[in-house]
Design a protein around this nucleic acid. Structure first.
Length: 466
RNA sequence: GUCCCCUUCGUCUAUCGGUUAGGACACCAGGUUUUCAUCCUGGAAAGAGGAGUUCGAUUCUCCUAGGGGAUACCA
């Protein structure tokens, strides 16, 4: 049987880290089994669903290349089908109409609470006759759940778990306005879509026991379930804005690579021995549901950042240059000239080992793009104290006389100067770097001076001296 | 309140009864380097607590504590 998985987000907000990981696991499992990965937008809550959220979800998935098979399915377009099944359940005698008012139900819950019992529907209309129905209340349809015994779910991640049926109540499948509830819709949609494996967040686990009774009543085969633990913030609580509660697109904004996101999220809850760096291709081969852990994980942006540094360092220079070009064009409205781009490409090996995000990398390139006088960052200003400026001034006289301008000559010149004046190389090199790049961190100094050219290099030093 | 789940270094995790409890990130120290970063070497750092089962428990069982989730005419 062909494996079919699905990602079923409700478009009520951005696509956050947890959602992406769920999508990733579904996608990987489908690919690993040569199956299908489908997308279903659960937009039946018309009040909370928004067009922006739908787009955010799809754009997020597209960014990470988690492409779904076939057309996405909108749950809202399938309401008639859900109603049909709801009514069939009614006909079959597995469901019944309930005429309780909302007030009555609230009262019921509060009473249960006072008695320290689980607040649930008491089954008032389960056996009552239609003729007793009040005229002024539109009924809801509730499913008849077994009241004794227990229900068991054999979850791939959570294991074999059962709860007593008296914990469950006869939940609503069709609202008084005739619309289906989520509990019914998921079951019908998963069935109609041929979903074989439901991989979703742990927060849906207890729903599974309810949904199972719908499957049973309809005599439908239950899919396999894998409930994955939730992701928490660093404080152990809910994901906070600082830690993962942002939309995935903001990680793109912050300069995180998609391969970083995928690799990081994969390792959050899933592992393969000591393996940390896992490409998408490898992940497809290795992924399995059995290696998903049972405990929740915390979102640690430090780890994400360090992984990102790894992926930046291992990316092709040409690709990074292109990314930087786009960064300047989109975020700063600056078109980098081809000449400057080739300078950046030339210096990329020295640059990319020093950046942890694309944004850092791009900012690091600024001295290639700027022309004298360049702006100095905080650290370089600190380097350029009076003493160091004086050192520069003295050396400038010698440097300006250098005739052959290439890195070998420059290195030779600088080293000779230091030797002759009995100063450490760093004593001269660091102020030079600060003056020439406006930064305390940069690729190799000699090479950099060569590519910048004599005039530009000297101009930048002159600007400091003044 | 009730039900369900979880608990190994600060963080992500390995371990499927016998290990000096391993790796990675972060941290600290040293080395390489013109600075910073990279890189290399080393270090500190963990089985929530308590009972059992067993020759032997991180691993199996129970209790307690802590955390999370679910308890909607939301999804």
């Amino acid at each position: 049987m062909k494996v079919i998985t699905r990602f079923a987000p409700s478009p009520t907000g951005y696509l956050h880290i947890g959602g992406v990981r769920t999508a990733l696991f579904n996608w990987l499992f489908a690919k690993n089994n040569n199956g299908l990965f489908k997308l279903r937008i659960e937009d039946t809550d018309l009040k909370r669903s928004t067009q922006e959220a739908k787009e955010a979800i799809m754009n997020g998935l597209k960014w990470l290349d988690l492409n779904w098979d076939q057309e996405e399915i909108y749950q809202s377009k399938r309401i008639d089908r859900h109603k049909e099944i709801g009514n069939e359940l009614l006909r079959l005698g597995y469901a019944y109409k309930c005429y309780c008012s909302p007030e009555e139900l609230t009262e019921m819950r509060e009473k249960a609470k006072k008695e320290k019992k689980a607040p649930r529907y008491n089954g008032k209309w389960r056996e009552k006759d239609e003729s007793e129905a009040p005229k002024d209340i539109k009924p809801v349809i509730r499913i008849k759940c077994p009241q004794t015994g227990s229900t068991n779910i054999n979850d791939i991640v959570q294991g074999n778990i059962s709860i007593k049926n008296n914990e469950l109540d006869d939940f609503i499948i069709i609202r008084s306005d005739g619309t289906p509830t989520y509990m019914l819709s998921v079951v019908v949609d998963d069935f109609d879509m041929g979903v074989t494996h439901v991989i979703r967040g742990d927060d849906h686990f207890t729903n599974t026991f309810r949904q199972k009774h719908i499957y049973n009543a309809l005599n439908w085969e239950l899919p396999k379930y894998a409930h994955i633990p939730l992701i928490h913030g660093m404080d152990g609580g809910k994901l906070s804005k600082r830690h993962g509660a942002l939309g995935v697109d903001s990680y793109d904004d912050m300069g995180y690579l998609k391969e970083t996101m995928l690799n990081y999220l994969l390792r959050l809850g899933w592992s393969h021995g000591d393996k940390e760096i896992i490409s998408k291709e490898e992940a497809i081969k290795l992924f399995n549901l059995d290696s998903i852990g049972k405990s929740s994980a915390k979102f640690d942006i430090e780890r994400l950042t360090s992984l990102n540094a790894y992926y930046i360092e291992n990316k092709k220079n040409e690709e990074l240059v292109l990314t930087i070009k786009n960064y300047y064009a989109n975020k700063k409205n600056i078109n980098i000239t081809n000449n400057d781009l080739s300078l950046i490409l030339n210096g990329m090996n020295g640059l990319k080992t020093r950046a942890r995000t694309i944004n850092e990398l791009a900012e690091m390139c600024s001295f290639y793009i700027e022309k004298a006088p360049i702006t100095l960052d905080k650290k370089s200003k600190k380097v350029l104290n009076n003493e160091n400026i004086n050192t520069l001034k003295l050396y400038y006289n010698q440097l300006s006389k250098l005739e052959i301008w290439n890195k070998e000559e420059i290195e030779e010149d600088i080293k000779m100067y230091c030797q002759a004046n009995n100063i450490n190389l760093g004593k001269l090199a660091q102020p030079l770097r600060a003056a020439i790049t406006g930064k305390s961190v940069s690729p190799g100094l000699y090479e950099l001076m060569e590519v910048l050219g004599k005039n530009e290099t000297l101009a930048r030093i002159t600007n400091i001296n003044n």
